[in-house]
Simulated scan of single mutants.
Amino acid sequence: MRMLIVDDDFYCRNMLHEIMKPYAQCDIAVNGEEAVFAFKKALEDEKRYDLVCLDLVMPEMDGQQALREIRSIEKDFKINGDDEVKVIVTTMLDDRKETHDAFFLGGATSYLVKPIEEDKLLKEMKNLGFSV
C-alpha cells in the first residue's frame, strides 16, 4: 500500500508515519501544495497512492483546497468512483461545516478528529477495505 501523509505539524506527521509504516510505504507532504504536487507526480509515474491522510488547516494551501485539487487531478486522469484514492481527513476541527465541506464539496472518504489514536485509525482503514 502507498500512502501520502499531509500535515504541517511535525508531531502529527511523525505519529501517523509511526502508526502506518508497518502497513504502507509512506510519503510526506507538509502542506496542500506539496500534497497536490506529490499526488499528481505519483499518477504520472504510475505509482498511485492508495490512501491520503490529509490535515485541513495548513499554510500555503489548506486541506479543503488540496482535496478539491486531488479530485480534479483524478478526473483529468479519468479516475473515478471506486478507483479514486481514499482520503481520511485528519484535523483538530470537530466542526459540522468543515465535515460537510470535506465530504460533500471535497469528496473525502472519512474524517478523524485529532489527536489520532492508532486503534481508531486502523479500524477506519479496515472499514475502508485495507488489510491492516
Rank of each mutant, 00 (worst) to 15 (best):
V89P: 01
E98R: 03
Y111T: 07
V57H: 12
E46W: 02
D83E: 14
Q25G: 01
V52C: 09
V52H: 12
F130Q: 08
E34Q: 15
V57I: 14
A35R: 06
K78W: 00
L43D: 12
E124L: 05
H100A: 04
T99I: 12
L105I: 07
V57Y: 11
L4E: 06
A102Q: 08
D62Q: 13
D95C: 06
G106P: 02
R13T: 13
S72N: 13
K75N: 12
E44R: 13
K120D: 15
N31Y: 03
M15P: 00
K86M: 04
P22H: 03
A35H: 11
V52E: 11
D7G: 09
A29Y: 02
S72K: 14
N31E: 03
E84L: 10
H100S: 12
V6E: 10
M92C: 05
E124V: 10
L112R: 08
D62Y: 11
L4M: 10
V113N: 10
D45E: 15
D83Y: 02
P22G: 05
E98F: 09
A38Y: 12
E69M: 06
K123S: 14
P115D: 07
N14M: 13
L121I: 13
G129S: 04
F37M: 07
K86N: 14
L4N: 11
C12H: 12
I116K: 13
G81Y: 10
L43V: 08
I5P: 01
K40L: 01
S131N: 15
P22F: 02
D9Y: 09
A24R: 00
K86E: 10
D50P: 04
L16F: 10
Y23W: 08
A42M: 10
K114V: 10
G106Q: 04
K47I: 01
E18F: 02
V57P: 01
M1K: 15
R13L: 07
C53D: 09
D7H: 07
S110R: 13
G129A: 05
Y111E: 10
E44D: 13
D119Y: 11
M1N: 11
N127Y: 10
L128R: 12
L112H: 03
Y11N: 09
E46V: 08
A38I: 02
N80P: 00
Y23I: 08
K86W: 01
A38M: 13
K21G: 00
E33C: 04
V87F: 00
D119S: 14
T99G: 00
F37C: 00
V30P: 00
I73R: 03
V52I: 15
I79K: 08
G129F: 10
G106R: 04
Y49Q: 07
E118Y: 04
C53Q: 01
E124N: 14
P22Y: 05
D50K: 07
G32T: 08
E69Y: 08
G63T: 06
R68C: 10
A29G: 03
M61P: 01
F103K: 01
F39A: 02
Y111P: 08
L56Q: 07
F37W: 02
